[in-house]
Design a protein around this nucleic acid. Structure first.
Lengths: 200, 200, 200, 200
DNA sequence: ACCTAACCGAGACGGTACGTCTTGTCTTGCC
DNA sequence: GGCAAGACAAGACGTACCGTCTCGGTTAGGT
């Protein structure tokens, strides 16, 4: 996620001068995560992140274009965001697998707070919103689309269920639970959604 | 919405002193709405609202506990938030009616921006979040619950559809479209949701 | 002092309507004095005076043109500002009498604070400064001038001592002690000044 | 004056970070002086100083503890506050020299306004009052005390004139003229005071 | 016994300034 | 050239007062 910030030199000229400090990078991501969880996103400022990380503000501005991007990197550290897509044998099974993974993510210790912060920042900063959509939201929609496609090839899919609409329902419920009506991401929710989207 | 902020006197003794200026109230709500639409919520400050409304800052702080509450009142002015529940004759028809109303709301000129701002503020300010849930989100969930109950009495409802889960799906898709994947609230969406929740 | 505020009808038409409340007037002057002494002049506001006096702000604005004028009235209540000029028999004796009176004034419980406040306000508000000069400072200069004149007629006066310069010295020392180098107004000071201005 | 505010590092370790901007410092002192003269002290606010100087408010609050301290530094820029004490040969001559210097100071273009503002602020803010006394008033009293001491050694002094009382008279008249009865600081005043304090 | 006028308390109004906080940029010396 | 430190211009925060205004209610003299 966010390769752009790392500027990984590639085949071009060798970079000169002191190399980037990985220690500072880790301290920044850890501090950002802690602050979001402890104080809530509203109270997180670049200034406080720098202070807690024992880092100059410039070091943050040098490597991340915005506060949201710091958090997106922090999330990548906390949770494996790669979405595996093993063929589970059927639409219902694959769907359940994906839902279980998503719920596990949302239940992980600090991840829920980070996700809410990211969605908020996406509303406040349209440029970051674009990056968040492309690097997080759309990847998950694409993964679901693969499952839908496989199911369609097998004839396994309930009629009239497009990949886009399935994603709207699945992720809509996910984010709504996260932001609007704080309720647990439990097995009951998974079963209800599987029943709804995969037929009785 | 938010009666508490205005004329809490009610049946008690007559209020003393100069009465509240309705002109200022209107100017504040109009200015807040315009600024959210023009500049985005991140750039809206109490200071700018006061300046554009031609009002002292204290007049805002006197009547609303936070920026979010100003917007909630502004939304109440823009859109009739009362949710009518005529008996349309069946679960599918009632559901379609409610979806049409919600989509019309989201499509209204400045309302989408206001709703996104309110949800953002609910994340940033937990105290406001409580008020937003109680005065907006839960009212809509309750309205849907009435529909579900009527349908259940008629035996009109697909098995295993609780009121809570139906609300999660319906409003989840609604907010996800609003915040995550800006797509139009068109008839296709309504039909897909009716099909999903009311059976084939 | 400040007859203008009382507007004592004079020969004109009889005043109609509810008469001025002497109770409010007293409460305002008392509150103003207390606040100056307790909190210092910097912390005295019309708002606080009104609140402590249990009076509407308008009642203050109706009768006094500025905060300074309230204090000038309050001073008139605390201390008899009329300057008696009995003929004491000689320049030195008259001078000593006037100095004793002035020192007694400055030592009176709350008067020193009030005087400092008045001089400050005279600097901050030029219009009040004019009134303060005319109604307080110049009256005392005029009183001293009478003494000087009497002494001159008797040939009692040290050469080259004009009334104006004598006033500059006498009142200059008085105010300098009050504002610049807080030292007691004791007999030593009186004797030093008499010696200086009346010869050995 | 007020070294403490600026470069307290002295012989210690080198200071880190971006160094203080001398340009901003100068702009602030100039703006403060202009505003006092143009609008009067009552209308001078930190906000207006910052705006006219083209400076952030924080830059003022970082380096000066109060508005009065800004003005004290501004005065130090306008007028050489060092008090030279050449031995002029006698008490009368030294006294006249000091009086001439003081009158020249009071007559300098913007200095009178600054001095009045400083004395006002000393009354309004006791903490600043202490600083003003120590760094301005007492220095001048001490300088006069040196003159008195020299004269006493020579037997040049009129009997019964202590340094303290001489200062009360000299500076008392000075400040009284400045604040109470706006009259010019002319040669007549100097001669009168020399005659009074140095005998016929 | 009304009527009219002026006063009174309360408190909302449009403003301005307070002193603090954060933003994103900049400028040092050290590494 | 990265980095910690920290100053910089800008501007919002929520509070306190300013002087004005607008209510309901009170208290007199004039009729």
């Amino acid at each position: 996620m966010s390769e752009g910030t790392a500027d990984s030199a590639g085949a071009g000229r060798r970079r000169q001068g002191r190399p980037r400090s990985e220690g500072s990078r880790d301290a920044i991501l850890r501090a950002a995560t802690e602050l979001v969880v402890e104080l809530g996103y509203a109270a997180v400022s670049i200034e406080k992140i720098a202070q807690r990380a024992g880092v100059g503000k410039q070091t943050i501005y040098r490597w991340w274009p915005s506060k949201g991007d710091v958090l997106m990197d922090a999330l990548a550290r906390k949770a494996e965001l790669y979405i595996p897509l093993p063929d589970e044998g059927g639409w219902a099974a694959g769907l359940r697998r994906m839902l279980d993974d998503s719920c596990a993510l949302a239940r992980a210790p600090q991840v829920g707070e980070l996700l809410r912060a990211l969605m908020v920042e996406a509303q406040l900063d349209p440029a970051f919103g674009e990056r968040f959509r492309a690097e997080f939201l759309e990847r998950r929609r694409a993964a679901l689309a693969v499952l839908v496609e496989r199911a369609a090839e097998r004839g396994d899919l309930p009629a009239a269920l497009t990949a886009g609409f399935a994603a709207d329902v699945l992720f809509g419920v996910f984010w709504y639970r996260l932001m609007a009506v704080p309720q647990p991401f439990d097995d009951r929710l998974v079963e209800d959604l599987v029943t709804l989207l995969a037929g009785s």
